[in-house]
Amino acid sequence: MEFEAPSIKTLAELREKLKPLNIPIYFNLPDPSVLEPFLVIGQTSSDTSKTVQTGLIIEDLSVQIDIFLPDDESRGGVERVRSEAIRRIGRNNRMASTVLKDDTIGREVYHIVINLTEIIF
């Protein structure tokens, strides 16, 4: 029997929730030749300190989702994508999002950053 880490299951579920956005989804930043829109489910960190307190394996998994949209997208369109992504992720008590313009991928784009923390068992 092969063990599947709960974090792998959580990331796969997150991908399924975001598929209806119809934006290509990656787990690593794609090659610079890939044009927007695209979404990256990446940058994860884990805290298992609650495991010591309870004896159960409890993990706080923090995930960063980066959505890159073309520079010529309207601000209203960007906000709609941000709101739809948050709605599709679902209720989460620890979620924050930011919209910014940046050129970290080699060209100026709208960059939506969503940070969330899930408690998984």
Rank of each mutant, 00 (worst) to 15 (best):
E2N: 11
E2H: 11
E2C: 04
F3G: 04
F3C: 01
E4T: 13
A5G: 00
P6L: 00
P6H: 00
S7N: 06
S7L: 07
I8R: 11
I8K: 12
I8M: 08
K9R: 11
L11C: 01
A12D: 15
E13N: 14
E13G: 13
L14S: 06
R15K: 14
R15D: 11
R15I: 10
E16K: 12
K17G: 04
K19P: 03
P20M: 09
N22C: 12
Y26V: 02
L29A: 13
L29Q: 13
L29E: 14
P30G: 01
P32N: 11
P32C: 03
S33F: 06
S33H: 10
V34K: 10
E36A: 15
E36C: 06
P37C: 04
F38D: 00
V40A: 01
V40N: 03
I41W: 05
Q43V: 12
T44Q: 08
T44H: 03
S45Y: 06
D47F: 02
D47N: 09
T48H: 08
K50W: 07
V52K: 09
V52A: 12
I57H: 13
I57L: 14
I58L: 11
I58R: 10
I58G: 07
I58N: 08
D60I: 06
L61G: 05
S62V: 07
V63F: 02
V63R: 03
D66C: 04
D66S: 12
D66P: 01
D66Y: 04
I67F: 04
I67N: 01
L69A: 02
P70T: 05
D71T: 12
E73G: 02
E73H: 09
S74C: 04
S74Y: 05
G76R: 10
V78P: 01
V81S: 05
V81Y: 00
R82N: 08
E84C: 00
A85H: 00
R88P: 04
I89H: 05
N92H: 05
N92W: 07
M95K: 10
M95G: 03
T98L: 15
V99L: 09
L100Q: 15
K101M: 15
K101T: 15
D103H: 14
G106I: 08
G106H: 10
E108F: 13
V109T: 14
Y110C: 04
H111C: 04
V113L: 11
I114R: 00
N115Q: 14
N115D: 14
E118C: 06
I119F: 10
I119W: 11
I120A: 01
I120P: 05
I120D: 03
F121L: 15
